[in-house]
Amino acid sequence: MKAVGRAVVRVALAIWDFLVGDTPEVLVITLAIVGIAFAVRAHDSAAVIVLPICAAAALIGVVRFGRMRIDAKRSESEQH
């Protein structure tokens, strides 16, 4: 049973690593979009515009965040 438990934990950790890894901001942004979807679901005409715009903004945000992280790491290594 212990072996099964360990295997389950390993699989769960692997899935977490795939989905989140070192970019927790992507998870937070995605969950925010789910929240927005539920908030605007009663207004179809608004929702069909708001949701894609939110997803597009999320994409721009995660790319910018990724770039900022790389730039920060780079300038840190240049300082050393």
Partner: peptide, 17 residues
């Protein structure tokens, strides 16, 4: 949908960078 959006944003982020 949450799972797909999560994976999609991650893949696109890496692909763009």
């Amino acid at each position: 949908g949450t799972l797909l959006l999560l994976l999609g944003l991650s893949w696109l982020r890496k692909a763009v960078l």
